[in-house]
Amino acid sequence: MLYFKRFSQILVFFIGLTVVLRGLSLAFMPKNNVEDSGMEAVRANGILGEKANTIDVVVIGDSESFCSISPMEIWNKTGYTVYVCGSNSQPVNYSLKMLKRAFTNQKPKIVILETNTIFRNVGLKNTVLASLGETFSIFDYNDGWKKIGIKDMFKKASYTYTDDKKGYGYSSVIRPSKKTEYMFPTEEREKIASTNYHLIEKIKDICDDNGAKLIFLSTPSTINWNYSRHNSVKDLSENLGCEYIDMNLINDEIKIDWTKDTRDKGDHLNHTGAVKASEYLSRYLEESKLLSDHRNDNNYKSWNELYKRYLKQMEGKHL
């Protein structure tokens, strides 16, 4: 009887604790996808403010993704809507989170995972924390109390912010790379951490469940990419039955000029580099024949307007 009483007490305690943590999560979660509301990685989370079911391609990954892919360039070439949900130093667990967020409001047909994030070891602790944060978002937004008032706590979330460049991180800075040859063939394979591997499998499962095609993409980087990483991702993509594009091996087609197309000595592409990478990606997406051109679709009128604004901005910045 005593054991039953104690067991019941513990059970009641944990039920109550769940309610408390859920309540706190609801109160402290960002009520809008802007910085003032406590939202992190605002540019990437701009996808939450996009009109429902209008995004064809979602890109996830670390800074390599948002430095290399300009959705407005792809729009101009193909009429496909791409959103880059990549953020600085994004670990795979956050890529997974971003993907889940994207699927709440969008039905992308293609998901592109920029592969540099695969080699950022997430570790068991962060995976546990991330799962905890998914169930109880208070663990992710515990600093939110600094930015919100009492009234905000009881508001319903409404995401209004959208990014004009659809997640692209523009930079016209040129800092040439001394290294131009970096893909030296080898049979070596850089190890993918087991937690990361498991998270990528999860990403694949979510894509499958939502009818999206997962593509691995390695964007050009003389600092972050090499042949042993290529080999590992190639094995991974074959194991999961995914397509894999390594832009580092097809520079004859993309024509990245490492004296002009990088913003930080080969680590990331700058705008001219991103234009070249996006051009290649446009052709690739066209060849997949999975997507349709929305340029003449009235529902996507805002994209045409945004492109005009984008062009003006780019011209202005390049003057």
């Binding site: 009641v12 305690f13 109550g16 604790l17 408390v20 943590l21 706190l24 402290f28 208070i138 663990f139 992710d140 515990n142 600093d143 109390w145």
Partner: peptide, 18 residues
């Protein structure tokens, strides 16, 4: 339980982690 929840909530909200 109310005391326990209050203390835990205080730590969860005002703890310096992340």
């Amino acid at each position: 339980f109310a005391i326990y929840y209050a203390v835990i909530a205080f730590i969860v909200v005002f703890g310096a982690y992340g």
